[in-house]
């Protein structure tokens, strides 16, 4: 008798090297965000912190969470979820920047 499994694991095998590179990038970005916080850019400080955090999240999502190698449907799902949460935050920031004193 023969056991037969659906081998749905993609042949995609990632090398250790790329993970270590991403980790290095994440550490450098952490250093950067701490350094930038020490300099006073006024309102831009928060924006810079959010931008750096987004870049870090992008790296984690695509490489550590394998989204780059995943089927297109995954990227579409996550793209839609993120799109709506980002829109909500943009509207919230817009409201508070222009209407609330």
């Amino acid at each position: 008798m023969e056991k037969h499994a659906d081998h749905q694991h993609d042949k995609h095998v990632t090398n250790y090297g790329i993970y270590i590179l991403v980790w290095l990038a994440l550490m450098i970005l952490t250093g950067l965000t701490v350094t930038v916080a020490g300099i006073n850019f006024g309102q831009l400080t928060v924006t810079t912190a959010i931008v750096i955090a987004s870049v870090k999240s992008y790296l984690v999502l695509t490489i550590f969470m394998h989204l780059r190698a995943e089927q297109k449907a995954f990227r579409a799902f996550i793209g839609i979820a993120l799109f709506f949460i980002i829109i909500s935050f943009i509207l919230l920031f817009a409201d508070y920047s222009f209407y609330v004193r």
Binding site: M1, H4, H9
Partner: peptide
């Protein structure tokens, strides 16, 4: 064939 149901 023993079919192992899997949907990764």
């Amino acid at each position: 064939v023993i079919h192992v149901h899997r949907d990764d």
